[in-house]
Amino acid sequence: MPPRAARPPRCPRCNLAIHLCLCAEIPRVETRTRVLLLQHVMEVAKRSNTGRVAALALTNAKLLIHGAMVDAFDPAVLCEPGTWLLFPDGPTAPPDAPAPRQLVVLDANWSQARRMSQRLPALRTLPRLVLPPPEPGMLRLRETSHPSGMSTLDAIARAVALLEGPEAAAPLVRLAALRVQRIADCGTLN
């Protein structure tokens, strides 16, 4: 059996292979809503990690790691007034509720996100922002195990569009499409 080819080096910032690096294309997106990305520890090293790219683009974002014993985050940040959870299931906020000041986004695969939402008591009490299902023909690298599933970057772009308008979300939408196109053109995440 021939030896396995070495993987190309990755960009230390966006974590994609150097030939796919998006760093020069990452916009600076200002939002009123603070985005708190709660990333599952298993997502940190993944090349497909769009949560990291979203955190780089959003000026009002913070990325915290869940499940890392060394850098355990303080769950009190989830209890700040005006905090909502972006999640496809559960109790939605009342229609007359003020817009969230902070939106928690779980950056994980569907089963990890579901477990996080069940294991962190503060998340169970938050009002939910539920996105409509993705439009047919939306560019994706792969199908997800949840009917409303999409990449973290796509979900954040759609949430920003709902909360702050399509113009605010447009740079994130373009970045998500560019990422998918670049990877599809190369046929790999390596």
Rank of each mutant, 00 (worst) to 15 (best):
V29Y: 05
A159M: 07
L141Y: 13
L78S: 11
A54E: 04
R115A: 06
L172Q: 04
V180K: 02
V173L: 06
V104I: 13
L106S: 09
I18C: 06
L153Y: 06
P132E: 11
V41L: 07
M138V: 06
S151C: 11
L56I: 09
R4E: 14
T31M: 07
L120S: 02
G165E: 00
E43M: 05
L141I: 14
A5W: 06
L162H: 15
S111C: 07
P95F: 03
L126E: 00
R114Q: 13
A169P: 01
P136Q: 04
L163M: 07
L37D: 03
P98Y: 08
L38W: 03
M42P: 00
E143Q: 14
L86N: 07
V70N: 12
H40F: 11
L85W: 15
L78I: 11
P147H: 11
I26G: 01
A157R: 04
S117F: 00
E164H: 15
V130G: 04
R140I: 04
L56P: 02
L22C: 07
P3W: 11
D71E: 14
P12I: 08
E80N: 01
A61Y: 15
L86A: 02
A113Q: 02
R179S: 06
P91A: 15
P136F: 05
N60H: 09
L162S: 12
R119I: 00
P166F: 04
H66D: 10
G90V: 05
R4H: 12
A177G: 00
R179W: 07
E43D: 03
E43G: 06
V41G: 00
G67E: 11
L120V: 15
R158G: 02
C186Y: 11
L22E: 08
A169R: 01
H66E: 09
P100T: 08
P132Q: 10
A159C: 06
P3T: 08
R13H: 12
F87V: 05
R115H: 07
V160K: 02
Q39S: 10
P8F: 09
T152F: 12
D96N: 14
W84I: 03
E164F: 15
Q181E: 10
S145H: 06
N49I: 08
P132C: 02
L37E: 04
A177H: 08
V44W: 08
R13L: 15
S117K: 03
L129A: 14
A161N: 09
V35K: 09
L78Q: 13
L126M: 09
L16N: 04
A57Y: 11
P91M: 10
D154H: 13
T59Q: 14
M1S: 15
A159S: 11
